[in-house]
């Protein structure tokens, strides 16, 4: 099933994230990731949602979002036309036998070691979701202690923004 990324511009009102997630829950919409953040204007917040589904499901999500009074604009961000990335912190066990392999892997993925103790290493990596999934797969050869990832944020390439009309 195709993967979709949409950006949702919402009024920066108390409880707006709850309204969006509550709608997903009650309509049984299964999503992969959701991030929310401040924007260039204090009037709006921006929610980025990714999910897999057929085109009908995709249209349902967009149409149901537009029914929420706080939703101002929904825009689909496709893989080629947008820059998408997420950030992950991953903590693995630091052992003599695997230490060099972990460092080599981190170097290859341009993951930065941000915390280092005799027992553990924390690495920070940014990139598209696929790259982060790959890094986790690689780290599975060692002992992963903890993972925290942000979910996807995404901006359209070029001068268009979520509020400008496509030319």
């Amino acid at each position: 099933m195709p993967k979709y990324t949409i950006a949702v511009l919402v009024r920066n009102e108390f409880g707006v994230l709850n309204r969006v997630t509550s709608m997903f829950r009650r309509r049984q919409f299964n999503i992969s990731s959701l991030t929310v953040s401040e924007t260039e204007s204090d009037k709006y917040s921006r929610i980025t949602v990714t999910y897999n589904g057929d085109p009908d499901f995709h249209h349902q999500i967009i149409n149901q979002l537009y029914k929420l009074a706080d939703v101002c604009k929904v825009k689909e961000l496709d893989g080629d036309g947008a820059i998408s990335c997420e950030l992950m912190l991953i903590k693995v066990k630091n052992e003599h036998a695997t230490r060099d392999d972990i460092r080599t892997a981190a170097e290859a993925f341009k993951a930065e070691i941000v915390d280092y103790t005799l027992d553990s290493i924390i690495m920070r990596i940014t990139g598209d979701s696929r790259r982060i999934d790959d890094f986790i797969a690689l780290m599975n050869s060692f002992t992963i202690l903890e993972i925290c990832r942000t979910g996807v944020v995404s901006l359209e390439r070029g001068k268009n923004t979520i509020i400008t009309e496509e030319e």
Partner: peptide, 11 residues
């Protein structure tokens, strides 16, 4: 009038 009704249950 509600676009979310299209394909919600029948296509």
């Amino acid at each position: 009038v509600d676009g979310a009704e299209f394909s919600k249950t029948v296509k």
